[in-house]
């Protein structure tokens, strides 16, 4: 029984309660860093680390922290892990760190992470809290990678930096890697997902 519940906690963040496409949380990084698939992947993995590590911490101290100061406590925990991730990227992946720039420290104010800490980790023991956070993080990562891939293919004719469409057969849609393309492609992506969800519901 316990195992089944854990699987449920893990899977729900990936699709049914996906942070970006269903709950509309964490929109800023989802729009800002998805001009290429690899940027999306890096941001997704960094956020997954932060949400899992802060979920673990918040769940460990959930009985010690008084209710009145819990939000500031969570923010400081999250900010600490974000700083760890930022220093790690700066040291080992300087290119990625440079292209993501201030959006790495901005993970602190990603409402998805605060949401998991406040609504889940602070009320559950360690294992489900971490599993839930990992599910949420993976759900966030795949949306970012897919969105980044769509924008990279249409906007620069390449994927993960590998140019498979030559200049001759395909003129890149520059607008897709610009801010406007981010809004348009995420809007259409959510729209298409809604369309199929609605159709399935009607058929059922």
């Amino acid at each position: 029984m316990a195992k089944k519940t854990l699987t449920y906690e893990f899977v729900k963040g990936i699709w049914r309660e996906n942070a970006v496409i269903k709950m509309l949380l964490g929109m800023c990084p989802a729009l800002a860093v998805t001009n290429s698939a690899s940027n999306g992947l890096a941001m997704g993995l960094a956020s997954t680390f932060v949400v899992a590590a802060s979920g673990l911490m918040v769940s460990l101290i959930r009985r010690i922290v008084p209710g009145g100061v819990r939000i500031p406590t969570y923010i400081i925990i999250i900010a600490t892990f974000v700083t760890l991730a930022e220093l790690f990227l700066k040291a080992y992946l300087p290119d990625i760190s440079k292209s993501l720039g201030p959006y790495i420290p901005l993970i602190i104010v990603n409402c998805m992470i605060m949401g998991r800490a406040e609504f889940f980790a602070s009320k559950h023991p360690v294992t489900p809290a971490v599993v839930d956070a990992l599910g949420t993080g993976i759900g966030f990562t795949w949306v970012l990678v897919v969105l980044g891939a769509i924008r990279e293919v249409l906007g620069s004719g390449s994927i993960f930096g590998f140019a498979f469409l030559g200049e001759k057969i395909f003129t890149p849609w520059v607008v897709m890697v610009l801010p406007a393309g981010a809004f348009l492609s995420l809007g259409l992506m959510i729209g298409v997902i809604n369309y199929f969800t609605l159709r399935k519901r009607r058929a059922a």
Binding site: F183, L184, L186, G187, L188, I190, G191
Partner: peptide, 8 residues
Amino acid sequence: PITLLVAG
């Protein structure tokens, strides 16, 4: 979705 499209 429509809000995002308008924002675009």
